[in-house]
Every structure is written in C-alpha cells, then in structure tokens.
C-alpha cells in the first residue's frame, strides 16, 4: 500500500494531467447535453455584459449597414401590412400561423462564423419567455436554435455549427432533406439526403419543412448554388447559399412555438421517444 502511494506521489504531475484532461473531455462531450447550464457559457451575466460592451463599441462602425437592414425590414413589413388591409374585406379566419407562433425580437451581442461550432449570444432570455429548443430566424432566413438561457441572455446554436441539422424542403420538387454545415465556408451549407430520382436545379429555393415544430414551415434557408451527383451515390451533393449572411447578423427573432409540446407529446405516444 505504501508503495502504491509512493508510486502515485512520484507521478503526481502525470496523474493530475490525466485527471484534468479527462475532466475537460467529459465537459466537452457533455456540453451539448447541458441544456440548462446558466453559468458556464456566454449567457452568464458577467460574460454577456463584457461581450455586449465589446459588440456595442464595434457597432459604431457598422451603423450605416444596420440602418439599411432595419429599413429594408420595415419596408417588408409595410408591404405585408398593406396586403392585409387590402384583404380586410374578407374576414380573417383564425389563422394557423397566428395561433401557432409568437415572436420575440433580440439583438445579437456575440457571434462567430469561423469556428467549427459557432454560437450566437443574444440579449433576451428567460424573462422574455425564451426557452431552450426554440427557433431563431432573421428577416432573411433561418438562423438557429436556442441552446441555453439565463435570465436576460440566451445562447443560440448557429446554423453554422457542424452538429446542427435542420429539416428542409426543396420548394420546387417538394423533396425533404437535411441542411448541415460542413465547417468550411460560412456562406454555404450542404443539403443532404435528396435522392437520385429528383432533379434539383441551380436556383431552387430551400425552406424549412416545419416537421420538427422548432422552425415554422417555409422559413427561407437559402438557394441551391451547386448540384453534383456521383456515379454510385444514393443522394445528391447540394450546396446551398444561405439567405442570411451570418457575418453581418445584427437582429434575430425568437420563434415561440405554442404547439411544440403538444406535437411532441402526441408523437411520443404514437411513435415513441425519438433518438
């Protein structure tokens, strides 16, 4: 026993090294499962305030561009409103989308595009009703999914994260696929699982399918830029140019899906728990 202790003492540095590395590896692997960690990510108050400060000082240099984006967004809403008032003769039925989804607007205070696993921090949290699992969209298209929330801030998994998958549909052919980033170019994602018999074309629109009730159906993802089909492959290799330029993301909207829990529990009772 004495000799065993001596042995451990002799190599204490090495064992401490192993212990620390094992702990880090555990954190790294479990990181995706910690949905509700409030402290150890950028949604904690100190980190978020520091990042917010650095973001706000950088913002001065892009005010012009932010203004342009906001006015474009405004114009878009005005057109929508105009259309609605023109249709107001028709009594508005209890529209699906109106009941199903509610939106919270938030400002991006931290964002990256060059890592393999990119996250976005925004300045709205629990007190605005945000919960993990909700979708984030911008005026241009889909942005990501809420990973964890603190009282006033939330962290989103960006679409530019090699672990993130979004169920999509090719609008022209109505075929379903999965959009996933390959980690290389922040302007493009890959559209997977489009079978051989379909004929996707350059310029086709890709939107969210609404299958998992996170994203509303029909949220723009991007436009097909490149279509390849290898001799033996079962599926196409499709590059999709993202509608939202993630390098200049300033505002997002969090989609509160009112019916998500209902859909999930219904699916759970009929098909069982999803992997």
């Amino acid at each position: 026993m004495q000799r065993l202790f001596n042995f451990f003492y002799e190599y204490r540095t090495f064992f401490a090294f192993l212990l620390l590395e094992a702990f880090c590896a555990w954190l790294l692997i479990e990181n995706n499962k910690f949905q509700n960690t409030k402290f150890f990510n950028s949604s904690n108050r100190l980190a978020a305030n520091i990042l917010g400060f650095s973001q706000s000082s950088r913002e001065y240099f892009s005010l012009r561009q932010i203004n342009e984006e906001l006015s474009r967004e405004n114009a878009q809403y005005k057109t929508l409103l105009e259309r609605r008032t023109q249709n107001s003769g028709i009594p508005f039925a209890k529209s699906d989308t109106l009941v199903r989804y509610d939106f919270v607007s938030a400002k991006v205070i931290n964002n990256s595009v060059a890592q393999f696993k990119n996250y976005i921090t925004i300045n709205q949290g629990e007190d605005a009703g945000i919960k993990p699992g909700m979708a984030a969209i911008s005026i241009a298209g889909a942005v990501g999914k809420v990973k964890s929330v603190s009282e006033h801030f939330s962290v989103l998994i960006s679409l530019l994260n090699i672990d993130e998958q979004v169920s999509c549909v090719l609008t022209r052919t109505s075929n379903f696929g999965t959009a996933q980033w390959d980690g290389v170019d922040p302007r493009f994602v890959n559209l997977l699982y489009i079978p051989r018999h379909v004929q996707p074309l350059e310029g086709d629109t890709v939107v969210t399918s609404g299958y998992n009730a996170v994203f509303p159906a029909g949220i723009m993802v991007g436009i097909v830029k490149e279509v390849k089909l290898k001799e033996e492959a079962l599926f196409y290799e499709i590059r999709v140019e993202l509608a939202q330029d993630f390098r200049r993301l300033t505002f997002v909207k969090i989609v509160k899906s009112e019916l998500k829990s209902e859909l999930d529990s219904l699916e759970k009772t009929t098909i069982g728990i999803r992997p």
Binding site: C24, A25, L27, L28, T37, N41, S42, A47, L51, S112
Partner: peptide, 24 residues
Amino acid sequence: LMLVAFLLGISVDVFYDSLGLHAS
C-alpha cells in the same frame, strides 16, 4: 501550472461557448 492553465482555459471557454475545449 496545470491548475492555472485549466482555470484560464475554462474562463476563455465561457466566452467561446465551448466548455472544456480551450481548457484541455
């Protein structure tokens, strides 16, 4: 040295949302 490295790595990780990556 290793303990300080771990603390520094974790502090950076908090901001990068990559718990354990920089620390390891």
